[in-house]
């Protein structure tokens, strides 16, 4: 959508989140919804990040702490399982890593340019101190 100038705004704008009609939003997972181009779901904030989380499912216990405390709806949970990170919406805050209770953690922060496979291959070992 072409960006409008500050003086081209519609007064009392009404934005629709979905194209067409949708009946049971609360029962429809995000990836199955017909979002309109006015929903911020279709936008990306990936370029905000300097660091990014990488998910290593080997240690994950599906506790869903990361899901509930992610401010940016970026932890993808399906059928009570943590299945990955939505990298278009993740802002790299690092909260998910802080709240992850496993040892070693199932989520860690890395520089944005880090290679996911390589980092998972060299994942830190269990921390014996705690």
């Amino acid at each position: 959508m072409a960006k409008k100038g500050w003086d081209e705004f519609e007064i009392g704008a009404m934005l629709r989140s979905f194209d067409g009609s949708i009946d049971d939003i609360a029962g429809t997972p995000q990836m199955d919804r017909d979002y309109s181009e006015n929903s911020s779901y279709t936008a990306s904030v990936a370029d905000w990040r300097l660091i990014k989380p990488i998910f290593n499912k080997d240690y994950c216990i599906d506790c869903q702490f990361c899901w509930v405390y992610c401010p940016d709806v970026s932890i993808i949970a399906r059928d009570k399982k943590m299945i990955g990170i939505d990298m278009d919406h993740c802002k790299g805050c690092g909260i998910c890593v802080e709240v992850c209770p496993t040892n070693p953690k199932s989520l860690l922060m890395f520089p944005e340019q880090a290679d996911e496979e390589a980092e998972i291959a060299s994942w830190p070992a269990k921390n014996e101190e705690k």
């Binding site: 869903q64 401010p71 709806v73 805050c93």
Partner: peptide, 21 residues
Amino acid sequence: LKEFSTSADRFEGANLLCPGC
């Protein structure tokens, strides 16, 4: 929490709140 995580959010990302808000 597992049961809670089956919720389909009605609030979306790519909003402009600070990281960690």
